[in-house]
Design a protein around this nucleic acid. Structure first.
Length: 601
RNA sequence: GCGCUCGUAGCUCAGCUGGAUAGAGCACCAGACUACGAAUCUGGGGGUCGGGAGUUCGAAUCUUCCCGAGCGCGCCA
């Protein structure tokens, strides 16, 4: 018989579906002479009875029988052969199967006692890179999407058993930071974050803007003296100054290095504050100043092996025209590294460091071409693990007014946005009188959870591949498909549990589970599959949608079924158990999105 | 010009490797608190799934062409 053994670790739903699929294969083969791969059973749609659905259309031709008849016959055999199946109905070519209520209540009970085994068969050693900011300006809304995606994908990958190291590469060197340094030297008057009372990243960003202003002014002045625009742009004194700083940096000039270290340290402190308030973290930071020279040896190696070729001027290239791409430069003619050189080096370095078995680069979709080339180069260099690198590409975040543009001052600052979300949470909580009886500290923690929950859910529910619209008006709406809506449902269930504290699950009348309850249990049971799919596709949006669906279904059920006020204690216990399972799934799913669910709100 | 991605309700988005009458949320209209928390629930209107052709028992989903949007195609990062 199928489905008799439930081991201590809870059998995931996908294993149970696999057993049913096998039974279907056997029946098709024995009764109808149809040989086929195990079919994928679908979740039965809400409007039909049953929990699992087999689509029989694909077998009607070889079985030589119309769909409804074939479905009927398969249903009958399944009833005989699989003890868990206790009913079915046929709609055209769809065979909807109902499993015993007992089966579902068993699953409910066991899942309250132990988390389901969600591990994949072959856990991998993964590195997930995200954020990777420049050090010349503060984090903005685009970084927020990046951070939330990278962090959530890391959690999802961990949840299915992979080992994940979260890293960021801080782009701490180059002309951009030299511009801020130059402006600080000219106009800073010894300003520090402490003396100005502002975050270090904001202060350095201010000087970056100041540089830009200075530059434009100087260009205009030069053009007024008769220079062409092109010449003026190259000769502006402040640009020459910044370039000189970069040169001296590369020559390890002690004064320049000192200023560079100091200003960067201001920025790091500012970033840390933002990361902390956003609730993201890293296991390891890489600094471009330490990695930008990596990779040159690899280029030489590839050159010797004939994977790359050199042009007359000494620059090194790879020919990818047979892949439908073009030729790509890997090393400049003066022997210095380009971005690609560095990425080749760091990838190999990380392989050495972590023995990694895959890597996820969370970087915007404007760099898709770059990563396509990078992965190909690594494979051609003979690194097989490079086939398991993944560019987690995401679309831009647009505003109702259009694209964010620093020149037009429409860039949404990360810290400001987080603060606004918390303030909105506070305002709404107070209006609804939800904070009565909470201590000052609890209140702050609540506002933070709800405000961030709204922000994170709003951003993560959108498929990463798509450009998204961030409408401030809509983002602070806490009704409907939002984080707070989900958090509220969770809090309400926890409230039920507190009220019912002490009542025994043992008294639950498991046999009383009705179709509505079974539907909810089945929905909870889909968690495992959703998780795996989200992990395989590196897509937190799937978790977000699942949690929302579960929340909606529970709210609807809650409205029509009194959990605690029942004639029979056993019914209350059953419903309480079900509520608890739902709350557990909600909070676990939200945790994967980086969202905490409050106990009360 | 070439390549990649996207196009689903007024708006924001789902729709899993092709499967049932294309779904949610917001907004709009009409209802439900003397029952466990109404940040909730119930009902209603609203669609040629950008357009054409093809494959299939079956297409929002796959193929192809066209239209539209975004992003790439630097000895920039």
């Amino acid at each position: 018989m199928y489905l008799c053994a439930l081991s201590k670790k809870i059998v995931p739903m996908r294993a149970i579906k696999a057993v049913l699929s096998e039974a279907v294969v056997d029946i098709l083969s024995a009764e109808f002479g149809v040989q086929t791969e195990p079919p994928a059973l679908q979740i039965t749609r809400k409007e039909f009875d049953g929990q699992l659905t087999l689509v029989v259309f694909p077998y009607t031709r070889s079985a030589g029988m119309p769909p409804p008849e074939l479905a009927q016959r398969i249903g009958e055999r399944l009833m005989e052969q699989v003890s868990a199946v206790d009913g079915f109905n046929v709609v055209k070519g769809f065979l909807n199967l109902s499993l015993r209520p007992n089966f579902w209540t068993d699953r409910l009970r066991s899942q309250l006692e132990a988390a389901p085994n969600t591990s994949v068969e072959a856990p991998r050693e993964l590195v997930v890179e995200y954020s990777s900011p420049n050090t010349n300006k503060p984090l903005h809304l685009g970084h927020i999407r990046n951070n939330l995606l990278g962090h959530s994908v890391s959690e999802i990958l961990k949840a299915v058993g992979h080992r994940v190291t979260k890293v960021q590469v801080i782009n701490d060197r180059g002309i951009h930071i030299c511009k801020s340094m130059y402006a600080w030297q000219q106009k800073g008057e010894g300003d520090t974050p402490a003396s100005r009372g502002m975050k270090g990243d904001k202060l350095v960003g201010e000087f970056y803007v100041a540089f830009d202003k200075m530059y434009k002014k100087e260009v205009a002045e030069l053009m007024a003296t008769g220079r062409t625009e092109e010449a003026a742009k190259k000769e502006a004194p402040c640009l020459l100054g910044a370039q000189s700083l970069l040169r001296r940096w590369e020559e390890s000039d002690p004064d320049v290095l000192e200023l560079w270290r100091e200003m960067n340290s201001w920025v790091y402190a500012g970033f840390e504050t933002t990361y902390a308030s956003l609730g993201v973290d890293f296991d390891k930071n890489y600094y471009e100043s330490e990695t930008y020279l990596l990779g040159k040896d690899e280029i030489q190696k590839g050159l010797n092996e004939g994977v790359f070729f050199a042009k007359e001027d000494g620059s090194v290239w790879i020919d990818l025209t047979d892949e439908g791409l073009d030729e790509k430069i890997l090393l400049r003619s003066d022997g210095t590294a380009v971005y690609m050189t560095q990425d080749i080096g760091t990838a190999i370095q990380r392989y050495v460091d972590f023995g990694l078995d895959g890597m996820v680069y969370t970087v915007g979709n404007e760099q898709e071409y770059h990563f396509k080339v990078l992965f190909l180069v690594l494979v051609r260099l003979g690194h097989q693990w490079a086939e398991r690198l993944y560019h987690l590409s995401y679309g831009m975040v647009n505003l109702p007014s259009g694209k964010m543009k620093s020149r037009e001052g429409t860039v949404v600052d990360a810290d400001d946005l987080i603060d606004e979300m918390k303030q909105t949470a506070q305002q709404i909580s107070q209006e609804l009188g939800k904070t009565d009886g909470l201590g000052a500290e609890e209140k702050q923690s609540l506002y933070s959870m709800v405000g961030l929950g709204a922000l994170k859910y709003f951003i993560l529910k959108v498929d990463p591949a798509k450009n998204m619209l961030f409408d401030p008006e809509e983002s602070v709406d806490f009704n409907g498909d939002t984080g707070p809506f989900i958090q509220y449902t969770h809090a309400r269930i926890r409230s039920l549990q507190r009220k019912a504290a002490g009542s025994e699950l043992q008294t639950a009348k498991w046999a009383e589970a009705d179709a509505a309850a079974i539907g909810l249990i089945s929905l909870c049971d889909q968690y495992d599959e959703v998780l795996h799919q989200a992990a395989e596709q590196y897509n937190p949006a799937q978790v977000a949608h699942y949690v929302f669906e579960l929340t909606k279904a529970y709210n609807s059920w809650y409205q029509n079924h009194s959990v605690l006020n029942n004639e029979e204690e056993g019914v209350s216990a059953l419903r309480l158990a079900l509520s608890q399972l739902v709350a557990d799934r909600i909070s676990e799913g939200m945790r994967l999105l980086g969202v905490d669910c409050p106990e009360r709100m």
